[in-house]
Design a binder for these strands. Structure first.
Lengths: 154, 154
DNA sequence: CGATATAGTTACGAGATGTAATTAATATTC
DNA sequence: GAATATTAATTACATCTCGTAACTATATCG
């Protein structure tokens, strides 16, 4: 008995431990590419949504705009992403992935997919699908409280 | 379509989002008790394992011993936990929860349990059990790589 | 006894995340 | 159309979590 059985009844605890395992592992997988979980996510979303603005990207990834700035500085410094002034709104930048970035993202994506499969060993396809469903349900349970609060103070 | 569909195929991404939701929420639940997720976890494990040493506690929670020091300083300063020199090993401390700590932990535990149920709304008991199983499987998949590495360099 | 290991600590750094205030550009309003 | 407010990005700053290396004191082993 591992001593933390009192905490194992909580989804939050099991999830913290599982996520820590994944994050440590995926960061090790991404290190050879010069990426981490967060920069990989940013790169992937821009690649999938070329021309995205920083505010939209922050919204999609649920991070604050200021935190995005340094991440984009990093990716831009690595020549993986470009910031181009938007013609229709010269305050905003259009984000795009460079050719170099596209190539790197593709290889990293394969590596992360393999990693994800590795972390899912022992789970059937149905169990994996059920896990995704459960995780999204939890997210929406968390969001609904936020939304309720925001709606009540418009 | 939210723009992050490219990432939604990864357990790691869905889990990061779900865990962020839980952590934000549970910290709000614990704030009135003067606790956060981490201090609550430490307090709960000591309560469940009186006399525990710091090294053992760090091992159980999978955190580094140095990080535990400040957390225990905090809990000790709040009169929730005591460090007593072990008679058989004067380097070590025996950790115990004070009466005040026991009372607080009990109330906090109830609040966190309710919170966990709230975050699990929409999931059946079977789905919840399956979620725990999946999360533990993932943890053990992560750990097994570590173990393999350690065993290969004894 | 002397070498080595262990328990806790200190010092430090990196990464992720959040808030407040600033600047430049756009939108709104009178 | 000028004054005002809003928005995009940024800067500056603070906090939390987590990890490593080095130190002190005890303990153990040969």
């Amino acid at each position: 008995m591992s001593g933390d059985s009192i905490l194992r009844v909580f989804m939050g605890y099991d999830m913290k431990r599982a996520f820590a395992a994944i994050q440590t592992d995926v960061n090790a997988v991404l290190a050879p590419f010069g990426l981490r979980m967060l920069t990989f996510s940013v790169l992937s979303v821009i690649r999938d949504n070329p021309g995205l603005r920083q505010t939209q990207l922050a919204e999609i990834l649920a991070i604050e705009r200021p935190n995005l700035v340094l991440i984009l500085d990093e990716l831009e410094g690595l020549d993986l992403v470009t910031r181009t002034r938007a013609r229709d709104d010269r305050r905003a930048y259009e984000l795009k992935v460079t050719l170099k970035g596209r190539r790197l993202a593709e290889r990293a994506f394969t590596a992360v997919t393999e990693h994800d499969d590795r972390m899912a060993r022992g789970l059937s396809a149905e169990e994996r699908a059920a896990l995704h469903r459960a995780l999204r349900q939890i997210q929406s349970n968390g969001r609904s409280s936020d939304d309720a609060r925001q709606v009540s103070h418009p």
